[in-house]
């Protein structure tokens, strides 16, 4: 069992739900990422998604788009991201996964990427524009290097496809809460609850985590109730933007804000 899967299972056995937190690598600048990862960890995240910035992130809403642009403007590279992952893994046993688009990985070299990701302590990847297929070079390389491939299901995914996705997924299965991009206002929760209940029986090999549009401890509690946990991204990115753009806050105050936000979200996962 991978350490990511084991972590979610451990939380589940304790009767709680898992909390995953997303932050963009190199955002708002290169020096921030190592400290942000530590603050998120200290706040109680059960795993962390580190975003590999891409110039054309077509599944992202405005907050994560802007964070990617800002990180790229700051000069972040794939090597930097892998280094942040390795440094974090050296000081924490909280699983870290990388989230990003196919092209930067292809450019880096697919096999080399998964080899380097593994040696940097990365537990899994989430690739929103790479569809699950056993003969995909991305999936082959991930499997060969023991990196989990976390696949997504969405409200438009039919049950038989969800079963195939579950079979090709490892670490967990990521349920996109709504048809939309990250940071979308999820609106009425009842249709999401109905969808999660509908899809859940198809996901038997993996834990099911829900994300997109989850902003508060209350959101986490209501969404996680139908799954094994929830993932928060855009809301954290917005908070980091606001803190870093506020000249009246010191660095430690900014990091304290982040840690306290994560701790509050985590409270929504406790039974």
């Amino acid at each position: 069992m991978s350490s990511l899967k084991a972590r979610i299972e451990q939380v589940r056995q304790a009767g709680h739900k898992a909390l995953g937190m997303f932050i963009t690598s190199g955002f708002p600048d290169l020096t921030a990422t190592p400290d942000l990862l530590k603050a998120i960890d200290a706040g109680g995240a059960d795993f962390i998604e580190l975003g590999m910035p891409f110039s054309d992130p077509l599944a992202e809403g405005i907050p994560i788009q802007r964070s990617s642009e800002r990180a790229l403007a700051a000069g972040v590279t794939m090597k930097d991201t892998l280094r942040f992952a390795a440094e974090f893994a050296a000081g924490s046993d909280t699983p870290l996964v990388l989230m990003g688009y196919g092209n930067p990985i292809m450019r880096y070299g697919i096999d080399k990427f998964f080899k380097d990701a593994r040696s940097s302590g990365v537990q899994g990847v989430i690739l929103p524009d790479v569809l699950p297929a056993p003969d995909s070079p991305f999936f082959r390389a991930a499997t060969e290097n023991g990196v989990d491939t976390i696949c997504l299901v969405s409200p438009t995914t039919p049950p038989e496809r969800a079963e195939r996705i579950d079979a090709l997924s490892s670490g967990f299965v990521y349920a996109v809460s709504v048809t939309g991009v990250t940071g979308t206002d999820k609106g009425d929760t009842q249709p999401i609850v109905d969808y999660l209940r509908r899809i859940r029986p198809s996901i038997v090999r993996n834990a099911l985590m829900v994300g997109f549009g989850i902003r508060s401890a209350e959101d986490v509690r209501s969404m996680a109730a139908e799954t094994d946990g929830a993932i928060v991204g855009s809301a954290l990115v917005n908070l980091v933007s606001a803190c870093w753009d506020n000249p009246d806050l010191s660095r430690s105050q900014r990091l304290a804000e982040v840690e306290s936000f994560v701790r509050d979200l985590k409270s929504g996962t406790l039974s």
Partner: peptide, 21 residues
């Protein structure tokens, strides 16, 4: 260009050494 993924397809692409378009 070099082979790369943009807008849903793998084709030739103008991109930098980091795979940014």
């Amino acid at each position: 260009g070099e082979p790369g993924i943009l807008h849903g397809a793998l084709s030739y692409l103008l991109q930098d050494e980091e795979g940014q378009v």
